Amino acid sequence: MAWLENVDRHWDEIASRYNERTRRMFRYYLAVCAGAFRARNLPLWQVVFSKGSAGRYDAPG
């Protein structure tokens, strides 16, 4: 919901680049994603790739 609120809050700044149909699609997509996250039907993953020594981030064991 924070993403949707952010789009709404800043829409005036980006409105010249998009039409009203695109705004509705953004809002719909973000609202559907929020619902799916809440229902635990859609996971969100964040993967970080970095250069470093091999095995540095491996779990002990």
Results as ranks from 00 to 15, higher is better:
Tyr18Glu: 07
Glu13Thr: 08
Thr22Ile: 14
Gly61Asp: 10
Thr22Asp: 10
Ala36Cys: 07
Phe49Met: 13
Pro60Thr: 05
Trp11Asn: 08
Asp58Ile: 00
Ser50Trp: 02
Gly55Leu: 02
Ser16Ile: 07
Val48Tyr: 05
Ala34Pro: 00
Leu44Trp: 08
Gly35Tyr: 01
Cys33Arg: 09
Ala2Asp: 08
Ala34Leu: 01
Arg9Met: 07
Arg40Asn: 09
Leu42Pro: 03
Arg21Ala: 10
Val47Asn: 13
Ala39His: 08
Ala31Val: 00
Ser16Leu: 06
Trp3Val: 02
Asp58Cys: 04
Gly35Ala: 08
Lys51Asn: 11
Asn19Tyr: 05
Glu5Ala: 10
His10Ser: 03
Leu30Met: 12
Cys33Met: 12
Met1Val: 08
Tyr18Val: 09
Val48Asp: 05
Tyr28Phe: 10
Pro43Asp: 11
Ser16Cys: 04
Asn19Thr: 12
Trp45His: 15
Ala15His: 06
Met1Glu: 14
Leu30Val: 03
Gly52Asn: 04
Pro43Glu: 13
Ala59Ile: 12
Ser53Cys: 01
Ser50Ala: 15
Met1Cys: 07
Phe49Cys: 12
Arg40Trp: 01
Arg9Glu: 12
Ser16Asp: 08
Asp8Gln: 15
Ser50Phe: 03
Arg24Met: 06
Ala39Tyr: 03
Gly35Cys: 05
Val7Ser: 00
Tyr29Ile: 13
Phe37Arg: 11
Arg9Trp: 02
Glu20Asp: 13
Pro43Trp: 04
Asp12Ser: 15
Leu4Met: 03
Val7Trp: 01
